[in-house]
Design a protein around this nucleic acid. Structure first.
Lengths: 182, 182
DNA sequence: CGGCATCGTTTAATATCCTAGACACCCCGG
DNA sequence: CCGGGGTGTCTAGGATATTAAACGATGCCG
């Protein structure tokens, strides 16, 4: 019910504090049309919807991607220990209890010798991160590099990848992936 | 050129190895309509486009989000200084030069007194982050909290939000948002 | 109370989309 | 040479979206 164009548009318009007429004027369409759309009495053409969203402004991608009034909660989120890894690898997931999220944000801690495993990881989506402390050896699609504090990485998760701490001090990374791989 | 519905649909259809007629049959529309859309001679209604995409199948969000012909590269990414903020706020974006990414990963530094501004931010998508150093006052949809090292947050970006460093030391956050707000 | 502003809704006429069906083309097998 | 099956394109007419303008409801001020 909150997944169709009508509800989304109404939600988005009200969130930006615009009246039907005001939005219509900015978008260069009529107020009546906005009323009809928001009531689901018509299904606007993509061209019209784009014009309307330009008045907000918001892209079509944003519009269809956004979480419609669903349950957009506020979180001062806890980080939850997720698990695993052959010794010395610990992952803490931000907002783990929130299913349906678009993002997985992780605090990864690699003790000396920790390793994501000898067989390369590969999954859908994209991911990236920033090294906060220590050093880590990153291998992506055959290329290997050692990253230190302040260094960053970003890649399509379909590329085979592996992380190892070959140094002597603990390494910490903040990473994110979308869609969530955890 | 590759940003309108016509090019996107054609790309997506061919990527799935479907002819206009075959897609039309699966979607329950006519082949002529698909031809018209792919030529930009009409701008389909959202309802029609949804029906067409159901035949792929693909959601509207995916359709408008996807990078047509994108080449997802591997990155040991540089962080690029983005700008701004009333004094003392600096943002470093990971893989800034990669358009069409699904994620924006930021290294945010708040000098004492730095502030995202008195008028609340609000946009599509979701975002979250982890505080790496210092303290920051976060206000989301009316609720205010002070977060320190190791604390995390996560929320729908449509909620009005604001970040301020009211302490005496520099604060650093690693954050991520999807779809990218920068 | 009346007057004036805003709001969202509705209606008749017009512009646009969408369908059904024909058309032109190409390739392969008779 | 003439079918048959595939492709994408085009046109006429019915279906639907969109406009322009009127309507009723609310709130505020004199």
């Amino acid at each position: 019910m909150a997944n169709d164009v009508s509800s989304r548009l109404k939600a988005v318009r009200q969130l930006h504090g615009l009246s039907q007429r005001e939005l219509a004027k900015r978008a260069g369409v009529t107020n009546g049309m906005i009323s009809l759309i928001e009531h689901g009495r018509v299904s606007p053409s993509v061209a019209s919807l784009r014009k309307v969203l330009d008045g907000i402004p918001m892209s079509l991608a944003e519009f269809f991607t956004m979480e419609p009034g669903g349950t957009p909660q506020v979180f001062f989120a806890a980080t939850e220990l997720v698990e695993l890894g052959e010794g010395g690898l610990s992952l803490r997931l931000v907002a783990a209890h929130r299913p349906g999220r678009r993002l997985a944000i992780l605090r990864e801690t690699y003790e000396p010798g920790a390793d994501t495993g000898s067989e390369m990881l590969s999954h859908a989506g994209e991911e990236g991160g920033v090294v906060v402390a220590g050093r880590v050896e990153v291998t992506i699609a055959g290329q290997t590099r050692v990253l230190g504090p302040g260094d960053a990485y970003y890649f399509a998760s379909t590329m085979p990848h592996r992380f190892r701490n070959r140094g002597r001090e603990r390494c910490e990374i903040i990473s994110a992936s979308s869609p969530p791989s955890l």
